[in-house]
Simulated scan of single mutants.
Amino acid sequence: MTFAKQPVRVSATGGNAEEGLGIEVCDADAVTLQRYREDCSDARFMPAQSPDWVAAWAKHAPHPPIIARLCDGDGHLMSLALEVARQGRFGVARFIGDRHANGNFPALNRRVRDGLPGSHLQMLVDAIRHARPDIDLLVLERQVRNCGDQTNPLSGWPHGDSPNVSLAVDLEGGFDAVLERSSGKRKRKQHRSQARKLEAAGGYERRLAGSRAEAEAMLDAFFEMKAHRFALMGVQDVFAPDRVKASFRTLFGDAAEMQNPGFVLHGLEVAGRLRAVTGSSRVGARLICEFSSFADDELSEASPGRFLFYENIESACSQGLKIYDFSVGDEYYKRLWCDLETIQFDTFVPLTAKGRALALARGGIARAKRLINNNPRLWAIAKAVRRRLTPLRG
């Protein structure tokens, strides 16, 4: 089935006509993206639904993403930015950025406190189904339940816990207090030892990308490091597709030229070479590590990745931030710091009969992943099998 290249605009009304309730589903063209940015000026959202993220991913998407906008007589209520993809014979709509979009929360007007009525959510389903009959299933994964004092309205749909935990550090009390809560004496000693090794290797500098050229250089290093790490682990490189790399180059390149960027790159440079890189987003008083990697070279024993995290967390404390968020994924290096644990949630909303079958399958897979991830023995077996199935590439 094909659709017109022009923006698809469908309005649906329901409920009390005096309320002026309605929803519009549009291709994410320049006009729609500008309105989305304007709506977000009086809305809360998490980074992967921010105007900058949505615009960057929309620029490099093979097909125009869509934005569903719900409003009432007082104006904007909620917007949801989605990308549409084919999975076999199924069409799915998911958060724009797919697996790179974590901690998801839609753009929700600040006047909406306690979610939205079920009738509003049904309007959303009906409007998307009408505008895009090629979509069988809404796949809305890795969502947070709250953003500030607002409840995620999408929690009004049936949902289940996401397979992977999200870990974070409470920065209350400053860096000294953080260290006191997490084996601080050992961390300080280790950090001093690492610093001596890095100085002996030619000196080090923690850098913030302050220009597009610096952002490009850090991303080039990160993509190379991550590809090597994924190959060693036997994991598919989710950063490999050209459109993924291009989206991050646009996102962080644009941000590096802003005065108050919502996305930042930090790199640890030793002897003139980048040895570790982190890409982070900021929302309110929370700094979220979206991705990270380190070089597997002669300095890997000095743990440049852990050294950079120490520096990042110390810097976040000095800026008065309240949370350093390692995002989704349970890893040993995160557990060394974290004292906050959050379970996000997934929602699968079928729009067609085919979609109902896929929703059941996706729900079953999510439950199986949760079982494996929560069982150390099963998780160890799964990682060993994964390494054998994905040989190291030259």
Rank of each mutant, 00 (worst) to 15 (best):
3 F>S: 15
3 F>E: 01
3 F>H: 10
6 Q>S: 15
8 V>L: 13
11 S>C: 14
23 I>Y: 08
25 V>S: 06
27 D>F: 09
30 A>K: 15
31 V>L: 09
34 Q>K: 15
39 D>F: 04
45 F>I: 15
49 Q>M: 04
50 S>L: 11
63 H>G: 09
64 P>S: 03
64 P>A: 04
81 A>P: 11
85 A>W: 14
87 Q>T: 06
89 R>S: 11
91 G>M: 02
97 G>L: 00
97 G>K: 09
97 G>N: 07
103 G>L: 09
104 N>P: 13
105 F>M: 01
113 R>V: 04
116 L>W: 07
130 H>N: 01
130 H>R: 12
133 P>K: 00
138 L>V: 08
150 Q>P: 10
154 L>M: 08
154 L>P: 03
155 S>I: 06
156 G>C: 13
157 W>A: 15
176 D>S: 09
176 D>M: 06
177 A>M: 01
182 S>F: 11
186 R>A: 09
187 K>P: 00
189 K>E: 05
201 A>K: 03
202 G>K: 00
204 Y>E: 03
208 L>N: 14
209 A>K: 00
217 A>V: 12
219 L>P: 01
235 V>N: 15
238 V>D: 12
240 A>F: 02
249 R>V: 00
250 T>M: 09
250 T>W: 08
251 L>Y: 11
254 D>S: 00
260 N>A: 06
265 L>N: 11
267 G>Y: 09
268 L>H: 13
271 A>C: 08
271 A>P: 07
285 A>N: 14
285 A>H: 09
289 C>H: 07
290 E>G: 03
295 A>M: 02
298 E>W: 04
308 L>Q: 00
310 Y>H: 07
316 A>Y: 06
317 C>L: 03
317 C>K: 00
318 S>Y: 01
332 Y>H: 13
334 K>A: 08
339 D>E: 00
339 D>S: 07
340 L>G: 05
350 P>K: 11
350 P>M: 10
350 P>C: 04
356 R>I: 14
357 A>C: 14
359 A>D: 05
365 I>W: 07
373 N>I: 14
381 I>W: 06
389 L>P: 04
391 P>I: 01
